[in-house]
């Protein structure tokens, strides 16, 4: 009897802790939205009001007039789509080859991949910049996307998944006269659909929050990504928090909508890719 009561009490305490933490997770978003619909006089009032007295969309109108956020959005969409497609293709094909074939040089290549997988872009961005500069790719889309076309973790992740495809299946296809490429397109790709989905989400998220590299290679406003555009915007309107909040809302909203629609896939995709990669 005593045990049951203690058990229930424990659950209640857990809920209280989790709910308080949950409020801390959501509150900044709510506060950003509330600020974004306040007129500038109300933004700087003390004590701060949680329900705007005279809500207005004016901040949003000003933001869209002052900065081409639509353009930033499309730029980011383009860069992240190219990055994701390239990562999906290279990771699945080389993951397949590393999982199912033995060839001279295999272990050396794999070791190089493994040893350098952890090294972040920040460690080599200077020489990469000089290289991209020599290509004449400063202020171009290809310059932004170049460092995120392959992902070592993606290769490991796909290899891990493809290892579980039975070899008998591949051999049967070979007996039927399938070429290796056909095996890749008709057996491997369909069988790794869910892994590819997870990887795609991971790749999109990586590209979407890409920051320091675009900051370095892009200085033309028309080529800004969302992250870069918002940064420059907030530098221009440092003190006008109504406007900045509206800009942030515009940057966050598409992602929140997609997250709420695909929530399970996204949570699992990101967690599993991070874990298995």
């Amino acid at each position: 009897m005593k045990n049951i009561r203690w058990g229930s009490l424990k659950i209640i305490i857990m809920h209280i802790v989790l709910i308080l933490g949950g409020i801390a997770m959501i509150l900044p978003f709510v506060w950003m939205f509330v600020t974004s619909i306040k007129p500038s006089t109300e933004v700087l009032s003390w004590p701060p009001s949680f329900i705007p007295k005279s809500p207005t969309w004016e901040n949003y109108r000003t933001v869209l007039r002052e900065a081409p956020f639509g353009r930033y959005f499309l730029n980011t969409l383009l860069v992240s789509t190219i990055s994701a497609l390239s990562i999906l293709f290279t990771s699945s094909l080389s993951g397949f080859i590393f999982a199912k074939y033995k060839f001279p040089g295999r272990s050396v290549l794999f070791l190089v991949l493994l040893a350098t997988a952890m090294i972040p872009l920040e460690c080599y961005m200077i020489s990469l910049y000089l290289l991209i500069n020599r290509f004449g790719w400063i202020n171009t889309y290809q310059g932004v996307v170049a460092p995120i076309l392959v992902m070592a973790f993606g290769v490991f992740f796909m290899r891990q998944n493809i290892l579980s495809v039975p070899n008998e299946l591949l051999d049967a296809a070979r007996i039927d006269g399938c070429s290796e490429w056909r095996i890749y397109t008709t057996i491997i790709l369909p069988l790794s659909r869910s892994a590819l989905g997870a990887l795609a989400i991971f790749a999109y998220m990586q590209a979407w929050s890409f920051f320091i590299w675009p900051l370095i290679v892009i200085n033309e406003r028309d080529l800004y990504t969302m992250e870069l555009g918002l940064t420059m915007f907030q530098k221009r309107f440092t003190v006008d928090y109504g406007l900045i909040s509206a800009g942030s809302m515009i940057a966050v909203l598409p992602i929140l909508v997609i997250f709420l629609i695909l929530r399970r896939n996204i949570i699992e995709g990101i967690t599993l890719t991070g874990l298995k990669g």
Partner: peptide, 11 residues
């Protein structure tokens, strides 16, 4: 709890 994780860093 995953909400902040998916939101990009700048906003």
């Amino acid at each position: 709890y995953f909400l902040p994780v998916v939101t990009p860093m700048v906003p």
